[in-house]
């Protein structure tokens, strides 16, 4: 249980996908202007990350690895994610139209979001849990890791949409207006997350 909590906390705060690993920058900069869009996108990302992990983990462990096909990881994962997103969209449209109305528009955007592919590949990478390095998470840990990464994405989007509403004013120098000041604001938010660095190790000692 403690292990899962460590994975969750560190993927939300310390190894935040947007602010620390700098993946998924396009939606982070593009869809964070209005808070309702930011929340919609964030929730859709959480949803797809968890579903994608649930789909790709068994594929890797029960299909690719036993047959020595590990090198096909990238191509198989992106196909599985693309098909899964299509499938989720169709299912939501048919059975839960309300949710489809809220999230459906963001779903196709997520197919080629590098954070989603990143999480599914990272599940088999190295993770530091309570002082020791684990290579390859098990299924439960992977799901928690995906949920944490998605939550971290949502958190970053919401925080940043708050910051953005205040930066593009008339006091900003003309050259910096628009994209440059947005990136520099992202730098400051990212700097704040750098402060979480050692928190996990001390919290769960």
């Amino acid at each position: 249980m403690k292990e899962l909590l460590i994975i969750l906390m560190s993927s939300v705060l310390v190894d935040n996908y947007v602010l620390s690993k700098t993946l998924g920058i396009c939606p982070f900069l593009g869809v964070s202007k209005k808070i309702d869009q930011a929340v919609g996108m964030g929730i859709a990302v959480i949803f797809v990350m968890i579903m994608a992990t649930a789909a790709t983990w068994p594929v890797q462990v029960y299909l690719l690895d036993p047959n020595g096909l590990g090198y096909l990881q990238t191509i198989v994962f992106i196909l599985v994610i693309a098909a899964l997103v299509q499938f989720i969209e169709i299912v939501l449209k048919k059975f839960i139209p309300g949710l489809h109305k809220a999230l459906g528009v963001y779903l196709p955007l997520i197919t080629t979001n590098c954070a989603v592919l990143g999480v599914t590949i990272d599940n088999f990478g190295n993770h530091s849990v309570g002082g020791e390095i684990i290579t390859g998470l098990n299924f439960g840990q992977s799901l928690v890791y995906a949920a944490g990464s998605g939550l971290g994405f949502l958190l970053a989007m919401v925080l940043f949409s708050g910051v953005r509403s205040r930066i593009d004013g008339p006091t900003t120098p003309k050259v910096f207006r628009g994209l440059p000041v947005t990136l520099i604001a992202a730098s400051v938010v990212s700097l704040a997350f750098l402060g979480f660095g050692g928190i996990i190790d001390n919290l769960f000692k």
Binding site: V175, L179, P180, I184, A186, S187, L194
Partner: peptide
């Protein structure tokens, strides 16, 4: 990573200046 965002922001600002000199739209 914050340094990355910062340097990228500054270089985009530089690119904005150059684009403005040539009468082109700013990078977005």
């Amino acid at each position: 990573s914050p340094g990355g965002f910062l340097v990228f922001g500054l270089l985009i600002a530089l690119s904005t200046v150059i684009a403005a000199k040539q009468g082109k739209p700013a990078p977005k």
